[in-house]
Design a protein around this nucleic acid. Sequence first.
RNA 1: GGGCACGUUGCACAGCCUGGAUCAGUGCACCGGAUUCCUAAUCCGGGGGUCGUGGGUUCAAAUCCCACCGUGCCCGCCA
Length: 580
Amino acid sequence: MAERLRAALGARGAASEADSAVQQLEAPAQPPADLAVALHRPARRSGRTAEGLARELAEEFRGLADFRQISAQGAYLNFEVDPALLGIRTLDLILSRGGAYGHGSPQTSRVSVEHTSANTTGPFHIGRVRNAVLGDTLARVLRAAGYPVTTQYYVDDVGRQAAVITWFWSRPAAEWPPELLAELPVGWAHRAAGQKPDHFRGAPYPAATAFLKSHPEAAEEVQALARDLERGREPPRHHELAVEILGGMTASLERLGISFDEFVWESSLLTDGSVEEVRRRLAAAPHAVQEENGAAAIDATGYHLPTEGARIIVARADGTSLYVTRDVAFHLRKFRSYDRVIDVLGADHKLHAQTLEALLTEIGETRRPEFVIYAYISAPGGGKMSSRAGTAVYLDDLLEEAVRRAAAEVARRHPDLDPAQARRIAEMVGAGAIRYSILRVAAEKTVTFQWEEALSFEGRSAPFLQYSYARASSLLRKAEATEGPYPYAIEELAGPWERTLLTTLSRLPGTVAYAARTGHVHTLAGYAHELAEEFNRFYQEVPVLRAESGRRSRVALVAAARQTLGNTLDLLGVEKLDRM
RNA sequence: GGGCACGUUGCACAGCCUGGAUCAGUGCACCGGAUUCCUAAUCCGGGGGUCGUGGGUUCAAAUCCCACCGUGCCCGCCA
């Protein structure tokens, strides 16, 4: 089709417009047309009126295979795909590929997606969860697009923040500064038994940070600890503490369906000498300079960083390295194992990303990571989420509330459901709702957290999708057709709802490809909603089990819709439910 | 002050990459309907929008360019 159009335009002296015209074939068109091309520009090129050219081409393309009709509508050339053909292709593809429907062909380039990478200083608040949800979904989408993907969580166990945790916990309780303890909520340590380790161990962190600001001698202890970590001299309990807190953090993420292929400990970059190697290369870099106090830096005047000074410090006066220096080492390591390196970063790390790129240039590295930047989620009512200010909303609290509300709904609908199963459903509904509320918004959009928004169970929400899936499952159960094959006759699926549903089903592969290419995973959330909406419409208007004729074909359509919606839910990381 | 991002109905968002024809759409909220029938966490109908403002490019701009305004983030020998 594209070639015919290209040739036809070429023959009329409008070859230069052929590409953009062909491109329009990809975009959705105005019903009833399935494909449409605007001919204003080609017409001008070839010295005709757009209307005239449209008529001419419509005539030339008449009777082209696969199309029911090709017609001129004003300046537009409209193509109506033969619905039967589209339906057959779509159904056959879905029913034969099953769980792989929508997926791309295998790719060879290996991809690393680094996401979350939160410091082990306390529990997740939902601002940070956005990173995890985005990164995890992106990884799912890239896998579906055919790439071998490795997800990586970069754990900072050598920086000052890690040192603060160890500084506090490695001393006997009797030596905890009373001034610091006074800042902690009453009974913080007594609740320890029932608390997750990230909450318990992380509790003193904000107060400790504040305390250190006003107590230089204590701050020096922390700095000394950091120096030890830098030299590979790990204080007792340091690693266990990090592991313990990290365990609490990742346990929460697992409830959202998020796990990692690899945890990369920052200290490993020091012990294997790769940070040292980076420092040597930076010292020999074209713009290497020395600060008066001995700190090593790069003169970044030429990089136009939006900083006040034009110096990037790469090693402190005391010889310890900085986060960005270690991150250069980490990226060099990633470049060795992966062809595409993707970093999911909060908007507050944009400067860090630019700095990292400048340093890569300095050492003569030409490869670059791709950054997926997302905006932070503000606290309810606006402002930053801060543990100190008490404005943070924690993932665990949100999950608890979501599951509680979901459980109430389940109990109301199915009072006699087995309690274990009811709990399972509530968990999946609650977790799905949270995940979807994050996913449906474009990453670069700043959002202000609202409980009702995150906990919505109707309309544009995960439970709406899950409910649609459950309805389809229920239908197949009752039709005793939970397994194929699903024979059908396409002429029995010619009604308006069936047609629209089929068209929507056919759009998954394109949507996945787009999301993988651009990283805009929210488009997939939008697609899922459209698909569920279309299915519900069909469900409402078209009887399946009670169908007087064509029941088997409708069952096949339901099976295909369930499969497609299910595949989409897998990509979104929302659990599929066969009943709810 | 500088850099970057965002600004679409009462609220929350999609559409912007690749400009097109009833493309201004979705959810919530509001109003009115649908359940003897496959799960009403559903469906149907209705009201409501100068697509921040002003220029520019174009046959055509929510979509591209410039300026301005507003909001957010960043500008550490923190991460």
